[in-house]
């Protein structure tokens, strides 16, 4: 198990390294520089600015300089928000994005798994039916339609919750978290339902029932582990979806998170900021994929040696 974790971490590190390199060079290949757009500045001033940010150096040297900073935890200056470093910008947004993401994944997993289990255990019952309908809605109505509609109904018409922003404590979190979690609730409940039904049909469940240990213990000790393996496996990719979703949610609900900066930074060629956010999101994604693999290996001994 320890060697499995080490191996997984090691390959994750390589993926991260490849991610950094690729993003850096792709960014530099993009036509147009950060200071060449819509601004009439004299060539001297432009040269001065570029020199100040080392944009006049050869690309490979810029890359080494960037890596040097990275090792010391310095993501460089933002080119657009002149007085801020990328660390400042990410640092100010990260707590909000993390809170949002944490609650969304928690709600998605808890709600999705319990609804899916209820559906599998009482097939074609009312909960099963409602979950199915809810699941279809979660898949058919994207969050950028659902979000605005929820704002319109719950905030503007009923006045129950704040429309946007992060000034009302937990109340400003309710809609963003629920909407962000919704597509995953839909998917996880479907996945849990079908894999639990399948798992309950496995021959070793019959062995367990033959032991006379009662239906709940059969479920808890024998059926659930196998049923949740695909769900755990999905949580890795779900994180990727959540990152995409959080960019939308932060835009729709005007939350001061990291995602809000990203689109802006990309459109304005703010290299260091785009790099920083890519690294942050990519790192998260890689970390979650590793955690997913480790959890699965912990749950399924057959995966530990592969």
């Amino acid at each position: 198990m320890i060697s499995f974790v080490a191996k997984r971490l090691w390959s994750g590190l390589w993926t991260l390294a490849a991610l950094i390199t690729l993003t850096f060079f792709v960014m530099r290949l993009v036509p147009g520089g950060p200071f060449s757009k819509n601004r009439k500045i004299s060539p001297e001033v432009q040269a001065n600015i570029e020199a100040a940010f080392h944009l006049d150096e050869p690309v490979w040297r810029q890359f080494l300089r960037y890596l040097g900073g990275l090792v010391q935890g310095d993501l460089g200056p933002s080119l657009r928000f002149r007085d801020y470093s990328v660390n400042d910008l990410i640092g100010s947004g990260l707590p909000y994005s993390l809170t949002l993401g944490f609650w969304a994944i928690l709600v998605a997993a808890a709600l999705g798994i319990s609804l899916g289990m209820a559906g599998a255990l009482r097939r074609n019952g009312p909960v099963d039916w409602a979950t199915g309908a809810f699941g279809v809605m979660g898949i058919a109505v994207p969050i950028f339609i659902l979000g605005p509609l929820a704002q319109l109904y719950f905030s503007l018409h009923l006045g129950l919750l704040p429309v946007s922003g992060w000034n009302d404590g937990i109340r400003s979190l309710i809609l963003p978290v629920l909407i962000l979690a919704l597509p995953n609730v839909a998917y996880i409940s479907r996945l849990t339902r079908s894999s639990l039904i399948e798992s309950l049909r496995e021959p070793h469940i019959r062995t367990a029932r033959a032991k006379g240990i009662g239906p709940w213990r059969v479920l808890r000790a024998h059926a659930l582990n196998g049923a949740l393996l695909p769900v755990v496996a999905y949580l890795g990719p779900a994180t990727a979806g959540l990152i995409t979703g959080s960019i939308l949610i932060e835009t729709i609900f005007a939350l001061p998170g990291v995602g809000r900066h990203f689109v802006d930074a990309a459109l304005n060629r703010d290299y260091p900021l785009v790099m920083g956010i890519t690294l942050l999101y990519g790192g998260f994604l890689i970390l979650f994929n590793i955690l997913t693999d480790i959890t699965r290996a912990w749950m399924d001994p057959r995966l530990r040696h592969g």
Partner: peptide, 21 residues
């Protein structure tokens, strides 16, 4: 493929569509 999976999806799309003009 593994490396590309490591890219957050939106970011890859945005970077690529910028790269391609």
């Amino acid at each position: 493929v593994e490396v590309l999976y490591g890219f957050p999806y939106v970011i890859l799309v945005v970077l690529l569509s910028m790269l391609l003009g």
